[in-house]
């Protein structure tokens, strides 16, 4: 604990500089000195992030434009490496292996299916999680005995590692498992297409709705109670209060929560990888990339670049058109600014 807090000492020791600034003499010079300080404090983290993220990504993009060594599936001629141009991207997007279409069952033929599956999972889980999360948040916002116990219980699914969640629900959805017994069904949950998808969706909803609920709850709690009282006095019905007050006021927090969840769902890997190994139409983009790694780095790099671009595009659309501005809501206003 104390060792963790220790490193804070370093930036503090010479901290009179930023302190002086608050006296607001000579805004310009103050800004430069703060800027210099900020530069030295932030650079290490940014450099580290650049090393662990930017370098691999650039590496992946370079790889994506190179050929994988191996036998050409059509001509059966050994292909040396070398520049590939956009071949790897065409391979995935047009589902072409060499000059012909990829044979069904090969990884190359699964790209658009994987895109479809990924988006299907994303849309269904996020919609379910938003609706259920909202409901949970509303209940948790009320005052009743046992409220803190409820809030603690909600954290349990969130804290369980996804790998354990996957195994737990795999057991629940086993053929002789409790789910079939409870509902009197005999479904091979992880063995056929739609049941497998629903098993994954239910597991995901169980695991991540609490996170959603807590974010929405935080948004609910900043709405002053007087607003509701005033609306009540004015004769607004419960439904009107919800649509006219709660929804608009909670929207910024809600949009950020949805954005987080969408981006998280688009890279879904753990649950389908463990519950179905991607079989029965549950191969997400992430699973496809991982399967491709063993068959050819460069082709996998192209696919991971495509995946990254898809996620980036979705994030862009969210921030640009739906006003989910996570950065703005996270950008701190320093005290000087507010005054």
């Amino acid at each position: 604990m104390s060792t963790l807090a220790q490193p804070k000492r370093a930036p503090e020791t010479p901290s009179p500089k930023p302190k002086k600034v608050q006296k607001e003499v000579g805004q310009d010079r103050a800004a430069t000195s703060q800027g210099r300080w900020a530069f030295w404090l932030i650079s290490p983290a940014l450099v580290l992030l650049a090393v662990v993220i930017v370098y691999p990504v650039v590496n992946a993009i370079v790889m994506a434009f190179q050929k994988d060594q191996g036998l050409d599936p059509v001509t059966k001629v050994f292909v040396q490496g070398g520049a590939a141009g956009f071949d790897n991207f065409v391979h995935w997007l047009a589902q072409k292996c060499g000059s012909a279409a990829c044979a069904p069952g090969t990884l190359g033929s699964q790209f658009w299916d994987a895109v479809g599956t990924t988006f299907f999972f994303t849309v269904v889980t996020v919609v379910l999680e938003t609706v259920l999360g909202f409901w949970m948040a509303i209940i948790m916002a009320r005052t009743f005995r046992g409220r803190s116990a409820l809030r603690a219980a909600v954290l349990v699914p969130w804290a369980i590692p996804t790998a354990v969640t996957a195994k737990l629900w795999f057991f629940i959805f086993a053929f002789d498992g409790i789910a079939n017994k409870l509902f009197g069904t005999a479904i091979l949950w992880t063995g056929s297409e739609w049941p497998a998808r629903w098993a994954i969706i239910i597991s995901d909803v169980w695991k991540t709705t609490p996170f959603m609920a807590l974010l929405i709850l935080a948004g609910l709690q900043i709405i002053p109670a007087e607003v509701y009282e005033a609306a009540k006095v004015d004769g607004a019905s419960a439904w009107q209060r919800f649509t006219q007050i709660t929804l608009p006021l909670v929207k910024p927090a809600l949009m950020v929560a949805v954005l987080f969840r969408v981006l998280d769902a688009l890279r879904m890997y753990d649950l389908p990888a463990i519950m179905t190994q991607g079989s029965n139409g549950t191969t997400t983009l992430s699973i496809l990339v991982v399967e491709q790694i063993r068959q050819g780095f460069n082709s996998a790099a192209a696919l991971s670049t495509i995946t990254f671009l898809i996620i980036f595009l979705v994030a862009f659309i969210f921030v640009r058109f739906l006003g989910a501005n996570a950065v703005a809501s996270a950008t701190p206003k320093t005290k000087g600014q507010e005054k």
């Binding site: 930023p18 600034v21 103050a30 800004a31 703060q34 800027g35 300080w37 900020a38 530069f39 404090l41 932030i42 983290a45 940014l46 992030l49 662990v52 993220i53 691999p56 990504v57 590496n59 992946a60 790889m63 987080f260 981006l263 998280d264 688009l266 890279r267 890997y269 983009l285 992430s286 990339v289 991982v290 790694i293 780095f297 996998a300 790099a301 696919l303 991971s304 670049t305 995946t307 990254f308 996620i311 994030a315 996570a326 950065v327 703005a328 996270a330 950008t331 320093t334 000087g336 600014q337």
Partner: peptide, 27 residues
């Protein structure tokens, strides 16, 4: 602290946290 590009830095950091793991695993 007040400094230029704060918005950009935060955007980069947030973007980094949303980064798909598979895009790192391959390279």
């Amino acid at each position: 602290l007040e400094f230029r590009f704060k918005f950009l830095v935060l955007g980069f950091i947030l973007g980094a946290s949303m980064f798909p793991g598979v895009a790192l695993v391959t390279p």
